[in-house]
Design a protein around this nucleic acid. Sequence first.
DNA 1: TGACTCTTACTACGATTGTAGTAAACTATG
DNA 2: CATAGTTTACTACAATCGTAGTAAGAGTCA
Lengths: 132, 132
Amino acid sequence: MRLTDTEWQLMNCLWEKHPATARGIAGRLPPEIKWAYTTIRTLLARLVDKGAVREYKEGNTSLYEPILTRENARKSALKTLVNQAFDGAYGPLMHFLVNDPNLTPQQRQALEEALKEQPEKRGGKENGGDNQ
Amino acid sequence: MRLTDTEWQLMNCLWEKHPATARGIAGRLPPEIKWAYTTIRTLLARLVDKGAVREYKEGNTSLYEPILTRENARKSALKTLVNQAFDGAYGPLMHFLVNDPNLTPQQRQALEEALKEQPEKRGGKENGGDNQ
DNA sequence: TGACTCTTACTACGATTGTAGTAAACTATG
DNA sequence: CATAGTTTACTACAATCGTAGTAAGAGTCA
């Protein structure tokens, strides 16, 4: 399951607190984001369509709840990144992270040790369907 | 500089070998990708527009060369991922990677040690303009 | 030089994404 | 109940993305 930029924003709010109303989500968005109420509704509807979010009614009002877990969304995003930018293997990503000049030499050392046996591919399914 | 899926494909070919013709790139794409020659040209033109690639002529034929470095593209992609999915901090990403069940216990141990002092934010510019 | 083949330049077109607007239905309140 | 604010349902629309097609010019070879 790929999420777009705006979908990540909403999902982050939903993972933080759910179920939530559109209005509630609006309140929990980072302050620099000022979306129209209907924008949020549109994006939520798309997430429902994709199966990432469940919608149900309480009286007249829609409540939303994540179906996709944060864990699975992260896995999936990482897998995409690794495929696009790191030859499809986690090793190169790790190496790239390890070469971050902000790491202290000790940190780098320890990480490099750990990487010596880092398996190249992460096994398992991207998203096992059971993402509750 | 954000790259789309297809743009990553082309850039990966270009980083591998450049300068390159559109035809040459076609030959270096992974075998499961079968794009029309004109598709590749269109995508390259968009990359040139974005300033990720330089195009110059040899006789009648266009040669392409990356301007954006792989390093910078990776940095940028990682920053996007971290912002979307890991609260904008590298620490949580590292933790997520460390909790990969495919790591051996020793690897996990070493990584966790290293992470104890992992700074949350990576400093420096996303893309310093000097991406030659 | 005529017939092919390759390359270029330009255009196209549906799907997705970001960002709403409007009208109608619902709800709460004086 | 009349009015005002809230929520819904539906529609819109430009930009970007994936994926080409076509026509015309250039190079190549018999």
